[in-house]
Every structure is written in C-alpha cells, then in structure tokens.
Amino acid sequence: MTFAFRHTVTSLLRPAALLLAATLSLTTGPGAARADDVLVFAAASLKNAMDEIAPAFEAATGDKLVVSLAGSSALARQIQAGAPADLFISANKNWMDTLEADGLVQSGTRVDLLANSIVLIAHGKDSSPVEISPALDLGALVGEGRLAMALVDAVPAGVYGKAALESLGLWESVSPKVAQADNVRAALALVAAGEAPYGIVYATDAAAEDDVTVVGTFPADSHPPIVYPAAVMAQSGKPAAAAALAYLRGPDARAAFEKQGFVVLGE
C-alpha cells in the first residue's frame, strides 16, 4: 500500500482515542449534554437512519439523542474505558456479549433490534454483476487494486466479510489485496472515491451511496447472522435512556430503519 493510499484511509477516520476525547467532551465541555440528553453509541452503519431518528425523537419527546458513530469494537472498548454512553447499538452480538460479561449492560434491557446483509460493491454506477460462489475468482476481479473492508478481526462488517470469504474458499487468494479501514463507512468511502475498485459492506451502506454499485450479495449461510443488539448501559441513570430504546423499537424508528434497508426485529 502506498503512502498516499494510507493517507486516504486515515483522513477518513478518527482514531479511537480522539473519538473517546470527543465523546467525553459532550459531558465535560462548555457544550455539555443536558441531563435529558441520551448519549447513543451506534455502529457506523447506522448513520443515515440515526440522522433521521434523532431529530424525530427530540420532536416527539423533548429529549435529545446525542449520537456517536464508529466501529462497534471501538465503541465497546470506549465503554469499557469509562465513556458515558447511555445506549449502545452494536453491529454484532459479540461486542454486546463482552460488555454484558463485564457488567456494563443494564439488566433486562438488551434486545435484538435489527438485521442486515453484506454485499460486494464496485466503484461507479454501471458495474457488471457477479455470482458470489466458490467459483468466483475474486482476486482476478480486483486485479491490481484493493478490496476495501472494515477491520477483519475487530469490526463486525469486516468480521462477517472475512467469514463469508473463508466459507466460500475465497479468502486466501484475495487477502493480500484487502485494504482494511477502521469502520464500514470508511471502507464504503474508499470504493465511492475510486481508491479501491471493490469492497465488502453492509447492504444498507451501499444503498446510502450513489457512487457504488452492488454487484453481488453474499449467501446468508456463508456468515453468521448479522444482528444488531441494543441495550441501556449499566452506568446510565437517565429515565430517558429507556424511553429512547423504546422509541427505537417503535413505528417511527422502524420506518427510518426500513427505509435504509434494515430488517427490524422483534416488536
């Protein structure tokens, strides 16, 4: 990877330490969150939906959702380090399991909120579709370019993508060409900008970007189910946190999630 390419990746992202500092500033700085503000740590793939849900929640309740977006792994580690999140929405179950094992999840509040799928995307609007199967020569398809993915051993979208490629027998041939980004939206941005010709992202992310084409969907049985759990954090003492979680499961939030391509689970 050239220096210029590395610079492109890092310029799209905020390091976890900076994000933690920014998050903490919400409660300690001049613009500190009010007592009825609900600080939501949400997976980066939820950006478009949360952009719509947050103002609607405030209009309906008078309380405010302050949304901090990043890879689920970074957010979970920040909560472990003491970041004052009221709600956490993870893009996979493992990170919520970790926080629950650490005693950081308020008992009885955890719910499976959403489901998603992963797709192969290409730069531009008119790329040809491919059949994603063990017969796909993904390395040849990528050519001299890179396959953009979120961190394959930490960020859920990357973990799911690697699992799918391994299941299909494609990982070994393409792994040297993988460009890892800190979260799925950064991987999407690399493909949209033409820095990488192909990438693996959630279907919902692809739907939010005009400069990419979905060229194939990974078989559902090639990776673990993609489920987004949500819960109130144990340290939150705000009644509005439970109300916010209930709102996320209600009809207005459901419409926003479904518009972005999520499958809403449960109620």
Rank of each mutant, 00 (worst) to 15 (best):
A148N: 02
S107C: 05
S107I: 08
P176T: 03
E172K: 09
A140W: 08
A122I: 00
L114I: 07
V152R: 05
G124I: 13
P176N: 08
L147M: 04
L104G: 10
A163M: 11
D126I: 08
V119A: 10
S175A: 15
V174E: 10
I79D: 06
P84L: 01
N116M: 11
D126A: 07
A115R: 11
T98W: 15
D137F: 04
I132D: 09
M96G: 15
L113I: 08
S73E: 12
H123V: 04
I79E: 03
A163H: 05
S127Y: 05
S167Q: 05
A135F: 06
G158M: 08
R77D: 12
G124H: 10
E166P: 07
N116T: 13
A74I: 11
P129F: 13
A122T: 03
S167L: 04
M96R: 12
S173Y: 04
V155S: 09
D102N: 11
A83M: 04
S90N: 14
Q106V: 02
L87W: 01
H123N: 07
L168Y: 10
M96F: 14
G124K: 11
N92M: 14
L147R: 00
R77Y: 11
V152E: 02
I118T: 07
S127L: 00
T109C: 13
V105T: 11
V111D: 01
E166Y: 04
I132S: 09
G108D: 05
I79P: 10
L75P: 01
S107Q: 01
A101K: 13
N94E: 15
L99V: 09
L87E: 01
P156A: 00
S173H: 08
A91T: 13
A163K: 12
I121L: 07
G108A: 01
E100D: 01
T98P: 00
L114P: 05
D86W: 01
D153V: 09
L75N: 13
A148G: 04
E131A: 09
V111W: 03
S107P: 05
K162M: 08
P156L: 00
S127T: 00
D97Y: 14
D86Y: 01
G124E: 08
S127A: 10
T109M: 13
D137E: 10
G103N: 01
V119F: 07
G145T: 00
D126V: 07
P134T: 05
S173K: 03
D126R: 01
D86Q: 01
T98Q: 15
G82E: 04
A85N: 04
A122H: 00
L141C: 06
D153Q: 08
V119E: 07
G82T: 09
A101N: 02
K125W: 12
N94G: 14
S127F: 06
N92E: 15
V142K: 02
V111R: 11
A74Q: 14
V174Q: 10
S127E: 03
G143L: 11
S107K: 07
D86R: 07
K125R: 14
V155T: 11
L99I: 08
L136H: 04
V111Q: 06
S117I: 14
N94P: 00
N116S: 14
M149Y: 03
W95M: 15
